[in-house]
Simulated assay, not measured.
Amino acid sequence: MKYIDIVTGPQKASAIIQGCMRMPSLSKEEAAKVIKTAYECGINFFDHATCYGAGDAEVRFAQAFPLTGLKREDIYIQSKTGIYPDRQEFDWTKEAILSAVDGILSRLKVEYLDTLLLHRPDLLFDPEEVAEAFDKLESEGKVRHFGVSNLMPMQIELLKKCVKQPLVINQVQLSLEQSQLIDQELYMNNKTTDMSFMRDGSALDYCRLKDITIQAWSPLQVGMFKGTFIDNPEFPALNKALEELAQREGVSKTAIAIAWILRHPAKMQAIIGTMNPDHIKDVCDATKVNLSHHDWYELYLASGKFLP
Results as ranks from 00 to 15, higher is better:
Gly82Asn: 01
Met21Thr: 10
Ala57His: 02
Pro24Tyr: 03
Ala15Lys: 08
Val59Lys: 09
Asp47Ile: 03
Leu105Ala: 11
Ile17Tyr: 01
Ser25Phe: 11
Lys71Arg: 15
Gln78Ile: 09
Glu29Lys: 14
His48Leu: 01
Cys51Phe: 09
Ala131Cys: 03
Tyr52Phe: 13
Val101Cys: 07
Pro121Trp: 02
Leu113Phe: 11
Ser27Pro: 11
Thr68Ile: 09
Leu67Ser: 03
Ser25Cys: 07
Arg60Met: 05
Glu58Ser: 00
Ala57Asp: 06
Leu108Phe: 07
Thr37Pro: 09
Gly42Lys: 05
Ala31Trp: 00
Thr93Gln: 01
Cys41Gln: 15
Arg72Tyr: 12
Gly19Val: 05
Leu70Met: 13
His119Phe: 03
Asp91His: 00
Ile75Trp: 01
Glu128Asp: 14
Lys12Asn: 15
Val59Gly: 04
Gly9Val: 08
Ser25Ala: 15
Arg120Trp: 14
Met23Val: 08
Ala96Arg: 05
Leu113Ile: 04
Thr93Ser: 15
Pro66Ala: 06
Leu117Arg: 13
Ile97Gly: 02
Arg107Met: 04
Gln78Ser: 15
Arg107Asn: 13
Phe65Ile: 07
Lys71His: 14
Arg72Val: 03
Gln11Val: 13
Ala38Thr: 07
Ala96Glu: 01
Ser79Gln: 03
Gln78Trp: 00
Arg120Glu: 14
Val101Ser: 04
Tyr39Gly: 05
Tyr52Ala: 10
Ala32Glu: 03
Arg87Ser: 11
Gly42Pro: 06
Glu95Leu: 06
Thr8Leu: 12
Lys109Tyr: 06
Leu105Val: 10
Ala32Arg: 00
Glu58Tyr: 03
Phe46Ile: 00
Lys28Ile: 02
Ala62Lys: 13
Gly69Cys: 12
Pro85Asp: 11
Leu118Ser: 03
Tyr52Thr: 05
Ile77Gly: 04
Phe46Trp: 08
Tyr84Asp: 09
Leu118Tyr: 07
Val130Ser: 02
Thr8Val: 07
Asp91Tyr: 02
Ala13Gly: 06
Leu67Ala: 11
Pro10Asp: 08
Gly55Tyr: 07
Glu40Ser: 14
Ala57Glu: 01
Glu73Val: 13
Glu58Gln: 15
Glu73Ala: 13
Asp86Val: 10
Lys12Tyr: 09
